[in-house]
Design a protein around this nucleic acid. Structure first.
Length: 153
DNA sequence: GCCAACGTTGGC
DNA sequence: GCCAACGTTGGC
C-alpha cells in the first residue's frame, strides 16, 4: 500500500465535485507532466490511498481522503480535439498520457492547510509539497508522513 | 546538446 | 495581479 497526494483546483474540479459524482469516483485525467504521469501509470496500485489537495485557491490544503480504483488506463482526452487536454502529438498507437480512477473515501474534519504543513517542516522533511517551487500534481507521500499529517486532523 | 524564450503553476 | 520556479520547445 502506497500513499499519494493529488492536487486539484477547486474552481475546476474540487472535492465537492468528486462527492457529487456517481459512486463518488472520477477518472483523473488531464495529467500532462511526465513525472506525474509515471507515478500514475507505473507506481500507483489499485487500492492505494491519496490526499485530495486544493491548490490555487484562498486556502490551499488537504481536504479529503480518496482511493485509487483499478489499473492505469489510457487518457482519452489526449486524442479529443475538443478537450482542453488535447495533445496533438500523442499517438493512439503509442499513448503518452494515462489516468487513474479516484474515489472519495471521506471528508477531513477540517482542512489541513499548506501553511501548517510548512510550520511542521521539521517533522515533514522531504515532503515534496512543501519544497520550494514544487509544481507536481501527483506525488508520493511517505507512510510516516501520511500518518503524521492525518494526526494533525 | 546547449540554452534562451516562452508558457504554466500556484502561493501570496 | 504579481512573480518566482519550473518544464517544454526549438533554433543553432
Amino acid at each position: 500500500m502506497a500513499y499519494w497526494l493529488l492536487k486539484s483546483e477547486p474552481d475546476v474540479f474540487g472535492w465537492e465535485h468528486l462527492l457529487a459524482r456517481p459512486k463518488q469516483s472520477e477518472p483523473w485525467d488531464g495529467v500532462r507532466n511526465y513525472q506525474a504521469r509515471n507515478f500514475l501509470r507505473d507506481a500507483m496500485r489499485d487500492g492505494d490511498e491519496a490526499f485530495f489537495y486544493h491548490s490555487n485557491c484562498a486556502q490551499p490544503g488537504i481536504v479529503g481522503l480518496c482511493r485509487i480504483v483499478g489499473e492505469a488506463q489510457v487518457d482519452p482526452t489526449a486524442f479529443d480535439p475538443d478537450s482542453k487536454y488535447h495533445d496533438p502529438k500523442s499517438d493512439p498507437e503509442n499513448p503518452r498520457w494515462y489516468l487513474r480512477t479516484v474515489q472519495a473515501q471521506r471528508t477531513l474534519a477540517r482542512t489541513i492547510t499548506l501553511a501548517e504543513l510548512k510550520e511542521r517542516a521539521e517533522a515533514l522533511e522531504g515532503l515534496q509539497l512543501i519544497r520550494r517551487g514544487n509544481r507536481l500534481s501527483v506525488m508520493p507521500i511517505e507512510a510516516d508522513h501520511w500518518a503524521y499529517i492525518l494526526g494533525l486532523e
